[in-house]
Amino acid sequence: MLSRVAEAVYWMHRYVERAENVARFVHVNLHLLLDADHHGAGEQWLPLVTTSGDHEDFEKRYSRPTERNVVKFLTFDTENPNSIISCFRVARENARSVRDTISSEMWNHLNQTYLMIEREGRRRRIEDLQEFYTQIKNASHFLVGLAETTMSHNEAWHFGRLGRLIERADKTARILDVRYFILLPGVEYVDSPYDSVLWTALLKSTSAFEMYRKAHPHIHHENVADFLLFDRMFARSLYWCISAAERSMDQITEGMRPAPQAAAELSTLRETLESTDVKSVLANGLHEFIDTFQFNLNVVGVQIHQSFFAMKEAITQVPAQMQSQG
């Protein structure tokens, strides 16, 4: 398939997945605050910005990490390339450029969702946003369902899935990294009801709470980390995302000799996850482990670009316009 088209489908899915994750952790935080007030803890909005990785941009343009500022920054700020509205705008523009490749249903859905965000989203007050975040999450799930059922599971489909899973692995890793360290030092809460409230919030931020419950009887930080890093069956764990991404990569590279570097990097990443466990990760430092993971995940991303999208040696002119990608 066309390199440009593969790239656009890949980023289209990545950006929708990104928006879904932003929506989920803002939504969870809005909920959490209601319980936190009950326990007398302060508002915690800064970690959300930290998780998004855009705190420098935030600090430049906003005075304080208040609820209003953070919610605006992450949801409707068109200058923030990773806000929900920006993610859907980029996803839609990418979709527009590959309308012949994705199904009409997928395009209609992305177009409708973007128009809904533009039209209704801006009008809402923060108190009214909960329903909005639900709509965003649903919109992302709907896209997955449409891709699953209205599009052939061809090369383009696998590129889309690859993008989605890499984004998801990255977001689960970030949420775990940021939240874990905020939660852990709070010794005064350990084993208190509030402790369980906070870990529950972390699980909910990755849509993991109910599935975690089925796997582990108690909410304990080590089990939470184990679940989000290594669970074999939960679709947002790092292991699951990477091994499913590897399956799509296998389909994409079938028959290619030699196998592109991107495939090798992805397999190495999966092997790393297989060859360690939560106890040794915690012993050697969770943050360090996640840091290394994210570095290697970035390498995979760069290699995907070079193996499939770039075709550098042949480019004879500067493209007229590039879609914004990050």
Binding site: M1, L2, S3, R4, V5, A6, V98, R99, D100, T101, S104, E155, F159, I252, F308, F309, M311, A314, I315, T316, Q317, P319, A320
Partner: peptide, 25 residues
């Protein structure tokens, strides 16, 4: 889409050995 053929832009195409080529994955 309706014809089931690819939609290409100029930057997707290049002339190699007297033939028109698509840059693909």
């Amino acid at each position: 889409q309706q014809m089931g053929v690819e939609l290409a832009e100029g930057r997707d195409l290049v002339v190699v050995d007297d033939e028109l080529k698509l840059r693909t994955t």
